[in-house]
Each structure stands twice: as C-alpha cells, then as structure tokens.
Write a protein that binds this DNA or RNA. Sequence first.
DNA 1: TCTACATAAATGCAGTTGCATCGATATCGA
DNA 2: TCGATATCGATGCAACTGCATTTATGTAGA
Lengths: 152, 152
Amino acid sequence: MTETAMPSPDAIKVWARLMRVSRQLMERAEDALKEDGLPPLAWYDVLHELAEAGEGGLRPFQLIERTLFAQYNISRLLARLEADGLVEKLPVADDGRGQTIRITARGRETRRRMWAVYGRSIAELVGAKLSLDELSTVSALLGQLRHPPAAD
Amino acid sequence: MTETAMPSPDAIKVWARLMRVSRQLMERAEDALKEDGLPPLAWYDVLHELAEAGEGGLRPFQLIERTLFAQYNISRLLARLEADGLVEKLPVADDGRGQTIRITARGRETRRRMWAVYGRSIAELVGAKLSLDELSTVSALLGQLRHPPAAD
DNA sequence: TCTACATAAATGCAGTTGCATCGATATCGA
DNA sequence: TCGATATCGATGCAACTGCATTTATGTAGA
C-alpha cells in the first residue's frame, strides 16, 4: 500500500509554480501568435507531428498517441485544418474505418510561419531565462514528473 | 534591439516538457476530484484565496490579481459558486460598483474535502517523485521563468 | 458463417471560454 | 459643477471542450 500523506510545503510550492508558470508562458506564446494573425498552438502541435511524419502521413489515432489531445478533439481539429487546406484526409487501403492525414504544402508553410513566432517566444521565455546547465537540470527533473513515467 | 534568435534545442526540450508535464498532472488532479464527485480545480483556487482572506472577503478584482483567471471567468465562476451556496456576495459600502465576496461555512467545508483529494494528488504526483533537494531546485528554476518576473 | 465484441472516427448536446461590449458608479480636470 | 474618462462587474454571442453515444468497420470465437 502506498503512503498517501499530505504533500510537503515544498511539493506544494513546486506544484503551484509549475501550474502558474506553464499557464503564463502558454498564454504569452498564444498571444504572440494571435498578434500575428496566426492559428493557436494546438494547430502547431498537429502540423508539427504531421510534418515529421512526412508523405506517409499519420492516422488520427497516432496523433492522439503523440499529442495530449482527446479523440473528439483531434477529430474536430482535423476537420478545421482540412477546411483551411492545411491537411488532407486520404482513405487507407487495408482499414475501411480509418484515414490517413497528410500535411499539405500550405500546411507546411503555415507551420513554418508559426514556428518563426512560436520559436521566438520559446527563446525569449525560456532560453533567455536559464543557462544551459539550468536548462538541462530542469529538463531532467521535469522528466521525473512525467506521468506515466515514460516517453517524450 | 533585443536579439531574437531561435531557441536552443535545450530550451525547446524544457518548453515541451513543461507544457506536457503540467497538462498531464493537472488532468490527473482533475480526474481524482471528478472521481470523488468534487468540483473542478478552478473552484478550489478561488475558495482557497477566499478562505485565506477570512471574514473580510475579497473583491472580484482582487481575485483576478491573485489567480490567473480572466475577468469574465471570475464573474461567472463566482455566480456558480454563489448558486451552490459556497460564497456570498455583499455590497461594499464605499464603492457602489463593487461587491465583496465571502466564503460561507459550506464553502469552507467543500474546500476542505477538495483539499483531501487535491493534496493527495500533489503528494503522489510531485512529492513522491522528487527529493527535497530536487524540489527546491525545481522551485527556484521555475521561479526564474515567471512572467512577469515577480510575485507568487 | 454468424454472432459478439473491439476499434476508428464523428457528432449531438450541454457546459465553458474568449471576445467585445454594456451598464453603472467613481474619479479627475477644467 | 460638469463633462470626459476610467474602473468594476455582468452579459450576448460565437467558438471550443467534455461527455456520451453513434456509425462503420474489423476481429475472433463458437
């Protein structure tokens, strides 16, 4: 049986800062995109995965595994991306239920323009605030908090 | 002119883990509350601030300062809390525009029951994963990422 | 082969969020 | 004192989310 005592003040402080900082930074990054008339971060996540997947594309359920989106969320996000011509849906030969999602040239271009802004936000909000040593320390410690303790 | 180079791979990794870990942990904590039929975390944040404020209560705009909620969000959240009898709205003597929000006995009780679950989540998800040294290291480094670089 | 069950993806509905705006009161400057 | 401006909080509307369910196809066992 696992001990389930109440958290130490230090654990509470880490929790509070983690939640607060992640929300603040996310919001800053979203604002920067919005100011440039670009789509929200969620779009970037999907376009990024699809760009990495290349011409073969990905099945929606693979996107769910790779991102943190729920099934219904991916379903509707892909519908919006398709409506904007950033991805295309292809039938998949050996599974009549499914489809393969492939990024279009327009999708790659949008991703590129988003990265110009998003990357700058990351550089400013994280890269400029911590030394390389500190970055790798934080990265390792955050890695220990992953749940479930795996992938990345 | 500020240099706005693209982020280093280490900065990107910290960003990715920060966003991923915070979302995962938040979701776990929300799930735990839901399983016990308790209200969402947002309610806790507000009840917590109000409990700390004591009998004097707080004005809605003070809640906005202390939490990360938007004005319209607080407005509607308070309406729900009031509908559930967890807070009460009092007119404020020297400012006809405003009101003072005070937590009720029922509100304190709900907060207490939420903390039993929420606190356990924090203990399991953070306290059990890092040593005291690691906790204070993370806390300090996250502190450097605050934006704007202040309060907590 | 036929039935039961599992998986892929979409969708109806209710609740929530974001945005812009509004109504009301307060404050400040001429 | 009065008019312009600022602040407090609420709200209409459109978009988005979460949940449960649905539709369609695949798989496995009698």
